[in-house]
């Protein structure tokens, strides 16, 4: 059971959270099928650091964004929706 750092509650077991997947902006132009289907279906799916949305559904009920390493499951940053994204690009990552 990995721990996920909820920005409100602190580290909690991952089974308290709903995984909402890779963070991808919703296209503003909804008439472009290619664009829209890329938003719906195409995934980066990296083996490394990935930015995704989680909802602490079994806890405080709040959504947050996290930068998690998809191989080690380490989370190096979390932030609330709408807040400035942390700049982690300078840190070592694989």
């Amino acid at each position: 059971m990995i721990l996920l750092p909820c920005p409100h509650c602190g580290k909690r077991n991952s089974n308290e959270f709903s995984y909402l997947g890779e963070s991808a902006p919703r296209p503003t132009e909804t008439g472009d099928a290619k664009l829209w289907r890329a938003y719906l279906y195409t995934k980066e799916n990296p083996a490394g650091w990935t930015r995704e949305t989680w909802l602490h559904s079994g806890g405080c009920g709040k959504a947050f964004l996290a930068e998690r390493h998809s191989v080690t499951n380490e989370v190096r940053a979390t932030w609330l929706p709408g807040r400035k994204e942390p700049d982690t690009t300078t840190e070592a990552g694989s």
Binding site: E22, Y41, T42, K43, E44, N45, P46, A47, S70
Partner: peptide
């Protein structure tokens, strides 16, 4: 398991989540 990564080497994006 690595299909996205191998396809990525060819510049092809896939509708896959591992």
């Amino acid at each position: 398991g690595w299909a996205s990564l191998v396809a990525g080497m060819a510049g092809v994006k896939l509708p896959i989540i591992t």
